[in-house]
């Protein structure tokens, strides 16, 4: 019984079952001679339902002002973060095993306050990272995409370093850090590029 439980807890098995179910569905659709259905689904998933990329309008961005709401949410999280650093000594005690208390205190990972605080900072990061610029044009879109690619490379590089130097032991920590790391790097890099862009305009003015 315990062995079965162990396997059920294993993510690989869950992934495999999911994959089996998925291929089952796909096969079903193919045998029904509805290949186009799959492609329709893929089209919607991969292109957000948009088939031509002729329009340079940016899609799925929050309004400009939501960025400031995002900053407020992030700063609201700072006291919690500091409190955690000072008063909370973590739950990784027994040789890397995670133990969560049955009666969680305010700063424990399974306390509703901690869950909500984490959600708040994540929503804040999302709002800051993906809000429109004051003046949204094609160059901004280009820079945003560039920054996303840079972030992907950079974090992946850090993962590789983490795997090398921690022998994959601290992967739980990496997952935890991942909650904010991608977006923080993206925001820093994107802001920096925008800042450089504005600086270049100022420099130009200084000359002429």
């Amino acid at each position: 019984m315990q062995k079965i439980l162990h396997y059920v807890q294993n993510d690989n098995l869950v992934f495999l079952t999911n994959a089996c179910v998925l291929t089952g569905i796909l096969r079903f659709r193919i045998t029904k001679n509805k290949m186009s259905n799959i492609f329709d689904i893929c089209k919607v998933c991969f292109t957000f339902g948009k088939l031509n990329f002729t329009s340079m309008k940016s899609r799925f961005l929050f309004p400009y002002k939501s960025r400031f709401i995002g900053y407020i949410l992030i700063f609201a999280y700072f006291p919690v973060m500091i409190a955690k650093k000072i008063f909370y000594h973590g739950y990784m005690d027994h040789g890397g095993h995670i133990t969560l208390p049955d009666n969680p205190s305010l700063l424990d990972a399974n306390h509703i306050f901690n869950v909500i605080a984490t959600l708040v900072v994540m929503v804040g990061l999302l709002l800051v990272g993906f809000s429109k610029e004051k003046f949204e044009d094609e160059q901004i879109i280009q820079l945003r995409l560039d920054s996303l690619q840079w972030t992907m490379y950079f974090t992946f590089f850090l993962y590789m370093l983490a795997v090398i130097f921690t022998n994959s032991i601290d992967l739980v920590h990496i997952v935890g850090i991942n909650l904010w790391m991608l977006l923080v790097f993206f925001i820093i890099r994107f802001r920096w590029v925008i800042f450089r862009l504005n600086q270049s305009l100022k420099a130009e003015k200084g000359i002429s």
């Binding site: 003046f135 044009d137 094609e138 160059q139 901004i140 862009l197 504005n198 270049s200 305009l201 130009e204």
Partner: peptide, 12 residues
Amino acid sequence: GVSRQTINTIES
């Protein structure tokens, strides 16, 4: 309908 920055970077 673009920003001044964009025109500037195109020019340079």
